[in-house]
Write a protein that binds this DNA or RNA. Structure first.
Ligand SMILES: [Mn+2]
Ligand SMILES: [Mn+2]
Ligand SMILES: [Zn+2]
Ligand SMILES: [Zn+2]
Lengths: 153, 153
DNA sequence: CCACTTTTTGAAATAAATTGCAGAAAGTTC
DNA sequence: GAACTTTCTGCAATTTATTTCAAAAAGTGG
């Protein structure tokens, strides 16, 4: 909620401009309860009669990901989806389970999430590679789809 | 080495056909010491006067990934690269460090790799989600690029 | 508010990845 | 190996994502 309040000065301090488009895009992500694709954000804004191009959505999401305000969740052969990263609050790496059949995106439990973070921290130290807050996508089959594909189909 | 020997019967048993294109693509992956992109494989085969289309390369890689013979390493804004998965040999999930500046792909140490695998196993049990052997991409800055971006530029 | 510099934007072009479809090749049965 | 069935391939079309570039907007300092 009111995430825009935190991002605005952060953008400003780095010399990025506070444009209407950027604010609207952040607002959409902030209000959303589920993960959003670039195109979904685009449609949403057009519905509200805001003037944006899809290119701006992609560029803004790229920027927010680079600044670690947003995580990109990569689904193969499906458009990526995005979520706010809430820096400061807990683990920075979030793990998602992506079903390769129904494309559903599921968050991993928070305790496992903490363990993943610890491990990523170790990898960072060992390899002297600064890993950035982000989404890890684990692909596979969800319980429902596994049952379905087990019995034929 | 001679990886094709293992894949051939596996394909056959699942009703997939052993085509010249598939065998050549597997051979390229097998001989390669580094990670290969679809286009690189395409060029390689054309150089050797093999008749293939880029669409077939993509389709074959998709198939091999689905059958867990190959891992897809996703790099954002750069074509994905691929490596043989060597099922049977050790951990099934491999973690890669991808530098967002120079796009270099680095393998994680094998001991950390084992730890990641254990954790992925736990996630699989807890969420009743069958996670498939694959590549996890961790994005960030490699040591070299971090130094460079630290001093201006 | 005006003049000025720098960043950002939309629209269109381009690039990368995917898909539809008709012909070709693989596998099967005699 | 001919006839037959099924899968696969190449090509072209399409979709999705990215980039280019001139015009617009944001920020700065009168
Ligand atoms: Mn999530
Ligand atoms: Mn590797
Ligand atoms: Zn599913
Ligand atoms: Zn680098």
């Amino acid at each position: 909620m009111e995430y825009i309040i935190n991002i605005r000065p952060a953008l400003y301090n780095k010399g990025y401009r506070i444009t209407g488009q950027r604010q609207q895009i952040i607002r959409i992500l902030d209000k959303a309860t589920d993960h959003q694709s670039a195109y979904k954000i685009y449609e949403e804004l057009r519905k509200m009669n805001h003037r944006v191009s899809i290119a701006t959505i992609y560029r803004t999401l790229d920027l927010l990901v680079e600044l670690n305000f947003v995580r990109r969740i990569d689904r193969h052969k499906q458009p990526s989806v995005y979520e706010l990263a809430d820096p400061g609050k807990g683990p920075t790496v979030k793990v998602h389970l992506i079903c390769r059949k129904c494309n559903q995106v599921q968050d991993i439990s928070s305790s496992l999430s903490v363990m993943f973070n610890d491990l990523v921290g170790k990898a960072q130290l060992y390899h002297e590679f600064s890993i950035e807050p982000q989404a890890i996508s684990l692909r596979g089959l969800c319980a429902k789809c596994r049952v379905e594909s087990a019995r034929g189909n």
